[in-house]
Design a protein around this nucleic acid. Structure first.
Lengths: 157, 157
DNA sequence: CCTAACTGTAGCTGTTGTGATTACGAATCA
DNA sequence: TGATTCGTAATCACAACAGCTACAGTTAGG
């Protein structure tokens, strides 16, 4: 028994963060070349071009990248790679979604409410811890780990 | 490791952690009463009894709780509440699942491989940071925040 | 025994989130 | 004008989570 509608709580399987980091690193390595099309980024990340643009949307609004339509359009880094921390990217894409999963408690149960409140507070602390850890890496750091040259997708250079 | 076909990588969709913490706290408050049925736990957590048992499975294997079938069966805490850190619970339920989402990169792209490796390392560090944060709270701590008495589901006490 | 009350698990279903795909409009440059 | 590329909406397929039912295995009590 217990047919209460169960609390739908978001927090999901974001591949978006990984895709974003990948794209930013790619762009950081192609700064000299000018705009890069989402088609090329799509080939590098192995995801759909539309998905690339969707992921890059929030990053553009935050000023990390910029895009231009048209014949020689595409995407460019709008912030130096060494100033883009992974924490910033993560916060942009994760939003306010809980890191740990919370669940809709039974309003009739005092334990439910108490646990819920405690858990929400702890989730916040965890989110801060994650951000703090991600603050330690920048896109530049990741790019620096990449090998030297030959960083293009075959058939696009 | 790392099946590159397309993203099937887990992240945090688990309500299980929250349910587990809830149940453990409930059990910690009912230690004197003897075994608690998963039906009662189900009413408190507002999830299905079967789901409760599924979540509690790993915790029992780890020795945190124990269960007995039969007429007066149910679940009991098998470890003092002050020794159960949330980190332990989290690690049991999270397993080796990545905290941030990784994605299947393009094997033909050197950037892909590099980013992938970096991201995996960072994910490990983040997981440690999360665990460290969760190490600071125990089930006893959460129970202590609960109010005094009247911690049963109406109709069950 | 036999029944009732539990756990333990398998199987199916409904819902939801994610990403692929297509399509179309807007902007830019030759 | 026409080709290229972004921006976005709409739709589809797939997988994960959880709800639910059903049934087998255990235990207590008559």
């Amino acid at each position: 028994m217990a047919i209460w509608q169960h609390g739908g709580m978001p927090s999901s399987k974001n591949t978006q963060f990984a895709v974003a980091v990948h794209v930013l690193t790619y762009l950081a390595g192609q700064v000299e070349r000018g705009p890069v099309s989402s088609d090329e980024l799509s080939a590098s990340t192995n995801v759909n071009p539309v998905h690339v643009r969707r992921v890059l949307g929030p990053l553009r609004e935050a000023g990390l990248v910029c895009s231009r339509p048209g014949v020689h359009g595409g995407w460019e880094l709008a912030t130096p790679a060494e100033e883009i921390t992974l924490a910033r990217v993560w916060r942009l894409l994760q939003g306010a979604d809980p890191v740990l999963g919370l669940h809709g408690p039974n309003p009739d149960c005092p334990v439910g409410r108490g646990v819920q409140r405690s858990l929400a507070a702890i989730d916040g602390a965890v989110a801060e811890a994650v951000a703090a850890e991600l603050e330690r890496s920048t896109v530049q750091d990741i790019l620096a780990r990449e090998v030297q040259g030959a960083c293009s997708v075959p058939g696009q250079a």
